[in-house]
Nucleic acid binder design. Structure first.
Length: 306
DNA sequence: AAACTTCGCAACCGCCATCCG
DNA sequence: GCGGATGGCGGTTGCGAAGTT
């Protein structure tokens, strides 16, 4: 789909006549062709000059953006795969809104696309949960629920179709398992959850930028990837036990600083729900596994239980 | 089927850093 | 060292499509 901003010419006149010829809004096929051909011959860079020499009535900035976000041959189009989504979540937890840096780890994806994904999908979930999307509560929820599910989805995808994993993850860019816990706050809360020391295997991932200190330091490696996945692929009960010492018998749920998920048995429902999804469904998002409704006084209940 | 709402995303804007004469 | 040009980045806008009422 193309956004169809009306082509607007600057309505300046007189001395600024040259500016008035500058086009804005959606690019035409002709413009795309001009830009593509020019870059094919002369390469990119010097965008203002490039725009003039190519005969484009566009700013250099506009040309650069059009090329980088749309025309460049290695741009990957289509829905983000679970792998890519997982990677985005992981990297965002490390680097925040540094979209271009995150995009460097997703070949063929642009910072703009990732930014849009975050705003339209991730922040939407935060809104639905009535949590600030950059709050610790939301990040914890993402780590503890969304990312593990994504990981399992990744596993299912890769095992069911070994032929193509759209996201070409190198060893250095394999997504880490959720940077789970900052769990300190959980332990300090009245949560019925007590956490085990390590919830994910840092070794699974090795995001290349080793010079940066993750926002949330990880625990020593305990699980290998296989173990981690096995835990997920085993019964959800075992899953719960392996990740959280959840006392299902004594509580209908747990309270995460006011974020009350319904009983953790919701995991069963959640899995049942998205395990049944078509593996070929590329447009897989959090909605599939993470649907809550408000119960009032800030409490949330998963729709999966219904 | 029409009106309305929400979603997805391309494109723009403004700020900042770097380059270069 | 200075200042303009350029490039890069994150935030925001606005429109058509899709979905809902």
């Amino acid at each position: 789909m193309r956004a169809a901003m009306a082509p607007v010419a600057n309505n300046m006149s007189g001395p600024m006549e040259e500016d008035s010829e500058l086009r804005r809004g959606p690019w035409t096929l002709e413009e795309d062709t001009l830009l593509t051909h020019y870059i094919a011959r002369h390469g990119e860079g010097r965008w203002n000059m490039l725009a003039k020499c190519a005969g484009l009535k566009r700013t250099g900035k506009s040309c650069r953006l059009r090329w980088l976000n749309y025309l460049k041959p290695d741009i990957k189009r289509g829905n983000l795969t679970p792998q890519e989504q997982l990677l985005i979540l992981e990297l965002h937890s490390k680097w925040g809104n540094r979209w271009s840096k995150i995009a460097q780890h997703l070949p063929g994806r642009t910072d703009n696309e990732i930014k849009n994904y975050w705003r339209t999908r991730v922040q939407k979930q935060a809104r639905q949960l009535n949590i600030e999307s950059n709050s610790k509560r939301f990040l914890d929820a993402v780590r503890c629920f969304w990312m593990p599910r994504l990981l399992q989805k990744v596993e299912q995808t890769s095992s069911s179709s070994q032929t193509s994993v759209p996201c070409q993850l190198s060893d250095s860019t394999v997504p880490s398992l959720p940077t789970l816990p900052p769990l300190a706050n959980w332990e300090n809360s009245s949560s019925v959850i007590t956490t085990q020391q390590t919830i994910y295997p840092p070794d699974f991932i090795n995001i290349s930028d080793q010079t940066e200190t993750p926002q949330h330091q990880t625990s020593p490696n305990v699980y290998g990837h296989d173990t981690y996945v096995r835990n997920y692929n085993s019964s959800s009960q075992a899953l719960e036990q392996s990740y959280y010492n959840i006392d299902n018998s004594t509580s209908s749920g747990y309270d995460m600083e006011g974020l009350s998920f319904a009983s953790m048995s919701v995991v069963d429902s959640i899995e049942g729900n998205w395990m049944s999804n078509e593996m070929t469904d590329n447009l897989w998002n959090m909605d599939d596994i993470w649907q809550f409704r408000e119960l009032g006084d800030g409490q949330l209940e998963s729709n999966m239980t219904h």
